[in-house]
Design a protein around this nucleic acid. Structure first.
Length: 254
DNA sequence: ATGACTCCCAGTGGGAGA
């Protein structure tokens, strides 16, 4: 079974690229972030025609997430229970025995902004919720755009980024808090190519210069760890015309 | 280099992303 996550930065713009990618990479499930579409505008028919069941949770202009699966999902959950949130950032469902949580963690904008506090509260609520989810679903995958580079080796210029949003000790501590629940970063279970970024700024020829960050992650629970057969970032879609600034991440479960 | 790009909603500019 293969699972993927991709921040598409507008599904309206990226739909043809998503369909092309799914044709070349027929994953069993994919979590999407930044669809930027209300549910009534979601391209349901096109995605169903590609062979996927659709769970979507959108809003106007910003955010918006979706979970596409080859078969039915149960117990669909939108956003974090008990955490009052006007922004559509989480879609979860149980798929062939695996609790799959797709998340678009807040960006935080800058450390001294109101949005950074929201990010911290959001991450704390996520950790508490995932802890309870693990009790009822030992087989769990938490994947999405974390907006956190967990370590310096996930940053092209760790000196320049030190203390900046996405790289602060506070954000990294939250990432480690999720690891502390018994989750493991599937990507780091394997030897990886150098500079394995999942996001490159649109500006400054960042992709051409390979100046990026690894902020999109797939965390798997302890019960699934022995099944993880591979995890890669697919840079190819970043070479498309009008690409998303993020690349998909794929995990293979035996 | 107080920038750079892309998307959205707007409406001949500005917020947000990361």
């Amino acid at each position: 079974m293969r699972l993927a996550t991709w921040n598409v930065n507008s599904l309206a713009v990226r739909l043809p690229q998503l369909l092309d990618w799914l044709k070349a990479n027929p994953v069993d499930a994919i979590a999407l972030q930044e669809t930027k579409l209300t549910d009534d505008k979601f391209p349901q028919a096109e995605i169903e025609a590609a062979g996927y069941a659709v769970q979507r949770f959108g809003q106007k202009t910003y955010n918006g997430v979706a979970l596409l699966t080859r078969g039915d999902v149960a117990a669909v959950q939108k956003n974090i229970p008990g955490f009052d949130d006007e922004q559509a950032r989480v879609i979860a469902g149980t798929y062939v025995g695996v609790r799959v949580i797709g998340a678009y963690i807040p960006n935080g904008q800058s450390v001294d902004s109101e949005k950074f506090g929201y990010k911290m509260r959001w991450l704390e609520a996520l950790r508490a919720w995932v802890a309870t989810e693990l009790q009822s679903h030992p087989q769990l995958v938490l994947m999405g755009d974390y907006n956190i580079a967990p370590e310096d080796r996930d940053v092209y210029d760790p000196v320049a980024w030190a203390g900046q949003v996405l790289c602060t000790p506070e954000e990294r501590a939250h990432f480690q808090g999720l690891i502390g629940l018994g989750l493991v970063d599937a990507f780091r279970l394997f030897e990886q190519p150098p500079k394995p970024w999942s996001w490159w700024d649109y500006r400054n020829l960042a992709f051409r210069k390979n100046q990026g960050l690894r902020i999109d992650h797939i965390l798997v629970s302890e019960a699934l760890r022995s099944r993880v057969a591979g995890c890669v970032i697919d840079k190819l879609p970043r070479k498309n015309e009008r690409p998303s600034d993020h690349a998909p991440v794929v995990v293979e479960l035996a």
